[in-house]
């Protein structure tokens, strides 16, 4: 399908006439773009604040340059705290010891700029910590000429509630079981909701692979996250957006945000980490 669409697109591009579109594009004001993921297990609360870049106007901001003069506050039912800008890490942060992130709680993040622009979003932390009931590798498979491990993760979904999960993985390169050479967060996310298995045991199977198969590699690190709807929907919409790109005839998938008059996501999760040893 993709090849067919690419072929048609190429034929059209070569046979058709290409020129600047003569159409009026409404003037766009940049949005505040905030990414903030909170979890009871994290030692620090981090918010990264940027401005979006209107595409057709001469650049007046850079996607890669963070906003440094925003006022960023997090609020729970009982307290409000400000996150301060760390110019080294280019992020707003607050020690978790100064602000309690608790399971089954709701939080709001406020961001305001000196020019009066502001945005806010609310998210919640799932009720508890859910650990996999089973985690194992069952085979090495060859996919597209690459060798990969097939991993299986089983867990029992709590009944009568909507739950969202993210499974992601990294790998540790170890010289031996004690010395960590490096730890890599891979960022691939398997996103799951329980609409197909509410209250039942569920098994997810996914392929994982290290940078290279050599003698120093002995374990994968699996992160099993119970997430808020915002977390699940944001990354799912990012996936959908990526899948719909490259086809000029298809409707692009819109990326979710829970910020009012802003972009990005404020999302909560609980997490359980586990090592998956090769031997």
């Amino acid at each position: 399908m993709k090849y067919l669409i690419q072929f048609i697109s190429l034929v059209i591009l070569f046979s058709g006439c290409v020129k600047d579109a003569k159409v009026k594009i409404p003037k766009q004001n940049p949005f505040i773009v905030t990414h903030c993921y909170i979890s009871p297990t994290d030692s620090i609360i981090v918010a990264k604040v940027y401005l979006s870049q209107p595409l057709y106007q001469t650049a007046n901001a850079n996607n890669d340059e963070p906003v440094t003069d925003a006022k960023v506050e997090i609020q729970s039912n009982t307290q409000t705290k400000q996150l301060l800008y760390n110019s080294t890490l280019r992020q707003y942060q607050l020690k978790a010891s100064e602000f309690n992130i608790l399971p089954n709680s709701t939080y709001t993040l406020y961001i305001s700029l000196p020019n009066g622009n502001n945005t806010s979003a609310t998210t919640s932390i799932p009720a508890g910590y859910l650990a996999p009931t089973k985690l194992y590798l069952d085979s090495i498979i060859q996919q597209g000429g690459w060798y990969q491990h097939r991993a299986n993760l089983e867990f029992l979904d709590p009944p009568n509630e909507k739950n969202y999960y993210a499974i992601t993985w990294g790998y540790k390169e170890l010289k031996n079981t004690d010395t960590i050479l490096s730890e890599v967060n891979n960022s691939f996310k398997l996103l799951v909701n329980d609409s197909r298995f509410n209250g039942a045991l569920n098994k997810e199977t996914f392929n994982i692979y290290p940078a290279s198969f050599d003698t120093t590699f002995i374990a994968y690190r699996i992160y099993f996250l119970n997430t808020s709807y915002d977390y699940y929907e944001y990354f799912n919409s990012v996936n959908r957006n990526a899948n719909s790109s490259g086809n000029p005839f298809a409707e692009p998938a819109l990326v979710y945000t829970n910020f009012k008059n802003g972009l990005g996501v404020f999302a909560g999760y609980t997490r359980v980490d586990a090592n998956l040893y090769l031997k």
Binding site: I25, Q28, P30, F31, V33, H35, Y37, K48, Y50, L51, S52, Q53, P54, L55, Y56, N63, D64, T168, G170, E183, V184, N185, S187, R221, Y223, Y231, V238, P252, L263, G264, A267, Y269, R271, D273
Partner: peptide
């Protein structure tokens, strides 16, 4: 597409 921005991922480690 009207504006662009970058995804800032949830860095678990």
């Amino acid at each position: 597409p009207l504006q662009s921005y970058n995804l800032q991922d949830n860095n678990l480690t």
